[in-house]
Design a protein around this nucleic acid. Structure first.
Length: 680
DNA sequence: ACTGCTGGAGCT
DNA sequence: TAGCTCCAG
């Protein structure tokens, strides 16, 4: 349920940036000949041509929708280009999109606090940047304004017939009599336009953006003019915008709560909500949700931009719909192994690139019971401390599954004959890693690097020797494998499982059986390798990933640029002032296409949005956090020199003997101190 | 049996 | 905290 949070200030400048049909753009960058063509990304295509997970705007004009299957799309538009999602280990591999998302984030994070909201969306808090611009070089004094900024859509700005739209935007930005809030938004317009052009220049991706005083409104705005455009919500337009907005368009209200508002209390637009006193909403939906609803009806949303460039968890999952359901334990084990392999790889990358360690492994499954009574019952999810190393993760995940299965089928439920189990089937499996915390470091270099993620936490943490010592001594459970090596624990034999493949996996087709046996034998090796990589599992991870070209968020801008120049592949020419729409026009012979003419003009009435006095608290902290000073950052981090990092980590691991036995408690300690952006 | 695969968040 | 539910795209 959504929860209300107080506004820290009513004059923040918040942007929501949303990549346009992102997966399609990633594929089109790989295959430039697809640009401008109706294109969709499908995953798998055995069944009805696969599921569409992204659709280009050209394809949307033909009526192609995300809910369609590949075959359906071909019927609607025979010339549609269907691109397959990459597959690895028998499942969709989204890593290319994740990495592309990181490219974008690293650019968007340059001007202010940045929150990676999903693989293709970010929120930016540009308040400080806007305030600075207003103080130093306000748009009112600017001779020229970026073409891109002039293409902004400003809600509530009157464009009478025949008037020059761009000229109106220019006037709005330049207005001298504007109040402080509007002037800040004007700066936001310029900053976001610049950022979006920078994204285009460096990544070839277009995006759309919304600029407003809070996250909710910015998110709403970013979707109003797509693709490759930006939309602004001035304070005075808020009421007019929300009054007639269908309630389900609001984030968080697209599901059951939105249905309930419609069905149970007859609220169809956000404006309809205004009639309900806060107490009534609280009675019906609880204190928190009630207050939240009352606030959003008035355009009030206090959610902060969190300042997090990296995901809080990693997961790998796959569904096995209908007839593909997994019906034997070995079949489940096979797929679990695949999923764990992917997860382990991603955890290693995260450790390598971001110096973070995950603490918890969780297994989720969906199952059906064909037979008896409570076929309603859900397969319970299970979690345990996460141990690094592919084989360990596989082992633990399998144990979690078996624990869940026992609980699921109950004592008398599942008769097994051989390995074949009757009466149940697994229709989806996933493993995920959570409670990811940065590795502490004696030199604080890594902590400095993470400054951006946990706005104020590290600075306060570093100032306390006490905390630092404590953190250095405590070791997350992920390092248990290190202690195991020290205790010369015998290697765990990786089970020799080839034998079961032939006779116990009737659900797999021939190709899958072949894949299975080959991956299994590879994995046997891999399993031993992973057992052997301590003493430093960490160094193993570092080595393993160094060869790959990965986007590292720790790089500063100049380094990023120089690396960028070295990248292979065609890049657009740097024209200085590049226009995003121009780019789109060049792909679209008919520039008067629907997305260009989709306008949103509305005359705005009065407003009853409550206001509070503006405050600048935390300004210094924020500036400091974002004023990146390259020489303050430890070169070993910047240059990714493995030996030094290894030394650092080794040093961190030294006090091993001093550690008490209770690892779980220790890791609680560490996560307590390093938990990113936790509010006290 | 349905987009499939993520990811985040709040509640108990 | 573990495990659940809801939500978004």
């Amino acid at each position: 349920m959504p929860v209300a949070k107080p506004e820290s200030s009513d004059s923040r400048v918040i942007a929501h940036v949303d990549m346009d049909c992102f997966y399609v753009q990633v594929e089109q960058r790989k295959q430039p000949q697809l640009r401008g063509l109706p294109t969709a990304v499908v995953q798998y295509n055995e069944w009805k041509g696969g599921a569409l997970i992204a659709v280009s705007y050209e394809a949307r004009k033909f009526g192609i929708k995300r809910s369609m299957r590949g075959e359906e799309a071909k019927e609607v538009c025979p010339q549609v280009q269907l691109v397959q999602v990459p597959v690895a280990r028998g499942k969709a591999d989204l890593s290319g999109y994740r990495n592309a998302g990181s490219e974008v984030v690293s650019i968007l994070a340059r001007r202010g606090r940045c929150e990676r909201a999903s693989i293709d969306e970010v929120y930016l808090d540009l308040t400080d940047a806007a305030e600075m611009m207003l103080a130093d070089n306000p748009p009112q004094g600017m001779e020229t304004i970026d073409e891109e900024a002039l293409k902004s859509h400003i809600l509530g700005l009157n464009n009478e017939d025949g008037s020059d739209v761009k000229e109106n935007v220019r006037k709005w930005i330049h207005r001298h009599n504007a109040d402080h809030r509007d002037k800040l938004l004007a700066c936001g317009i310029l900053i976001v336009a610049e950022l979006r052009m920078q994204v285009l220049k460096e990544t070839e991706f277009t995006c759309s953006a919304g600029i407003a005083h809070n996250k909710m409104l910015a998110k709403l705005a970013s979707g109003m003019n797509k693709p490759a455009q930006q939309t602004v919500v001035p304070f005075s337009s808020v009421k007019g915008l929300l009054d007639t907005l269908p309630i389900r368009k609001m984030k968080q209200l697209g599901g059951k709560l939105g249905i309930s508002l419609q069905m149970d209390i007859g609220v169809n637009t956000v404006g309809d909500l205004l009639q309900f006193p806060e107490e009534k909403l609280q009675e019906r939906y609880g204190i928190n949700t009630g207050t939240w609803l009352w606030n959003i009806a008035r355009g009030i949303s206090g959610e902060e931009v969190e300042g997090r460039l990296l995901p809080k968890s990693h997961g790998s999952g796959k569904t096995f719909p209908g007839p593909r359901a997994l019906k034997t334990v070995p079949a489940v084990q096979h797929w679990l192994n695949q999923l764990c392999e992917e997860l382990s790889e991603r955890l290693c990358s995260d450790l390598d690139q971001n110096k973070r360690i995950a603490h918890t492994l969780t297994l989720h499954a969906r199952a059906y019971k064909s037979s008896d009574s409570d076929s309603q019952k859900k397969f319970p999810s299970k979690s345990c401390p996460l141990r690094y190393g592919t084989a360990k993760i596989q082992e633990d995940a399998f144990n979690l599954f078996q624990a869940g299965l026992r609980e699921y089928i109950g004592f008398y439920g599942g008769k097994t004959r051989g390995s074949h189990c009757r009466g149940w089937g697994i229709t989806s499996l996933s493993v995920s890693a959570s409670k990811i915390v940065p590795i502490p470091s004696g030199t604080c270099s890594i902590a400095k690097y993470f400054h951006g993620q946990s706005t104020s936490h590290f600075s306060s943490m570093q100032s306390s020797d006490n905390l630092n010592t404590e953190a250095t001594l405590s070791l997350p459970s992920g390092s248990e494998c290190y202690s195991e090596v020290n205790l010369s624990e015998p290697k765990i034999d990786f089970p020799k499982e080839e034998s079961w493949i032939k006779d116990t996996v009737p659900d797999l087709d021939l190709q899958e059986q072949k894949d299975l046996s080959s991956t299994l034998s590879e994995k046997t090796q891999d399993g031993f390798i992973q057992e052997d990589i301590s003493p430093l599992l960490l160094s193993g991870c570092l080595e393993q990933n160094r060869s790959k070209q990965q986007w590292d968020l720790s790089k500063d801008e100049s380094q990023f640029k120089s690396e960028y120049k070295e990248r292979k592949g065609k890049r657009l020419k740097d024209k200085g002032t590049y226009s995003i729409i121009e780019l789109f026009k060049s792909y679209n012979p008919n520039p008067s296409g629907s997305f260009l003419s989709h306008e949103y003009n509305r005359t705005v009435g009065g407003t009853d949005v409550s206001s509070s006095s503006y405050s600048r608290d935390g300004e210094e902290g924020r500036r400091e956090a974002w004023g990146y000073n390259i020489d303050e950052i430890d070169p070993s981090v910047m240059e990714e020199l493995p030996p030094e990092i290894q030394d650092e980590i080794k040093a961190w691991m030294q006090p091993h003997e001093q550690r008490p036995n209770n690892m779980v408690k220790r890791s609680c300690t560490i996560s307590h101190y390093f938990s990113p952006s936790k509010k006290s």
